Simulated assay, not measured.
Amino acid sequence: MTRDIHPAPQALVSEGAVLLDLHADGVAHIRLNRPDAANGLDLELLQALHAVTVQVHGDGRVRAVLITGEGKNFCAGGDVHAFLSKGEALPDYIRTTTAYLQMVAQLLMRLNAPVVSAVHGYAAGGGGMGLVCSSDLVLAGVSAKFLTGATRVAMVPDAGVSVTLTQLVGFRKAMELLLLNPVIDAATALSMGLISRVVPDDRLVEEAMGLARQLAAGAPAALANTKRLLWNGIGQGVDACMPEENAAQARLSGMADALEGLSAVIEKRRPVFKGR
């Protein structure tokens, strides 16, 4: 009988909106766990993701991090149903959720352990694209799709994407993606530098875990310092933009256009924006 060379992981967080397993080789596996909502980000999930990321940051056993999503999608962005349900309280809700998302993005960039994200289905909006843009390496299944999506609902990018996306794909391409919101397939995302590799859908998690294990076996101080040097090159711009992103997001979410945009997404129709 063939012996499994990888023993079962230790479940550090086994229930809730975000799950966390620690493998014996030092790979921490973070799983977004709202599959019925396409792992859309609401306040509960963001608070859980922040708590798990802080937990990983403080665990000296962690040598690499893998982020995946349960269900059919990696992360379809903010939960538009939760947003729309807040009514006049939406700006306060957006201010809070955006702050948590920004803290998560900053933590991922600052973790000593390299972060690998494995994207299947959609990575969209501030959540999906925010996690992609703040990861160190990103693998995508061949059928994966990417969408910035913020201006589609009369809002702005967050999680530092207004800086990180520009660094990844260039100013002109970032402007096109953020203003026009095209759906990008995995091959195009690879060619523009948004992601690291494209792999067969049925091998995505296996390939991503293999990459995380390769990183976990590397020299931890060298990888941590190399990662820090690279992120520090754009870190000042990211840190400076996040408060402005947060303020703009809260301000815009109080406008009628934002409610129209959210309604249009839910109703699968073209929005009619009136500039107010």
Rank of each mutant, 00 (worst) to 15 (best):
A216F: 00
L230I: 08
M242E: 08
L229D: 02
L204A: 09
A256Y: 12
D185T: 11
G235T: 01
S191Q: 08
L229H: 04
P220L: 10
L252R: 09
V163F: 04
L177Q: 06
V198A: 03
L262Y: 11
M242K: 10
L165A: 01
Q236W: 12
L165M: 02
T164A: 04
G235L: 01
V156R: 05
A140W: 00
L204H: 02
D158M: 10
E176V: 07
D185P: 06
T188C: 13
R228M: 13
P243T: 11
V238G: 07
L178A: 10
E207K: 07
S253P: 14
A240R: 02
R203Y: 03
A256L: 14
L147W: 04
V169R: 00
A187M: 12
M242N: 07
L215Q: 00
A258C: 15
I234G: 06
M255C: 14
N232F: 13
F146Y: 02
L230W: 05
A219Y: 05
N181T: 12
A240N: 01
F146A: 04
K145G: 15
V156L: 10
L194Y: 04
R213W: 03
V238W: 02
L230Q: 06
A247D: 14
T151W: 04
V198S: 03
L262P: 06
T188L: 15
K173V: 13
G210E: 01
P157A: 14
E176G: 04
S143V: 03
P157N: 07
L190W: 07
A189F: 06
G233Y: 05
W231F: 12
V153H: 06
E206W: 08
N246K: 15
R203F: 03
T151F: 08
E260Y: 09
V153G: 10
N181W: 06
I234K: 02
K173G: 04
A140H: 00
W231A: 05
P182D: 06
T164E: 02
A140R: 00
S162L: 12
S162H: 08
K268A: 15
M155Q: 08
E176L: 06
A216L: 00
G141A: 08
D158K: 04
L179K: 12
T151Q: 03
L262V: 11
T226C: 04
L139V: 05
V161F: 07
M209T: 04
L168T: 00
A248K: 10
G149S: 03
V142W: 07
T164F: 05
L211V: 00
P220R: 08
R228N: 09
G218F: 00
M175N: 11
P157W: 08
N246L: 15
L190C: 07
G160S: 11
C241E: 13
L190M: 08
G237Q: 09
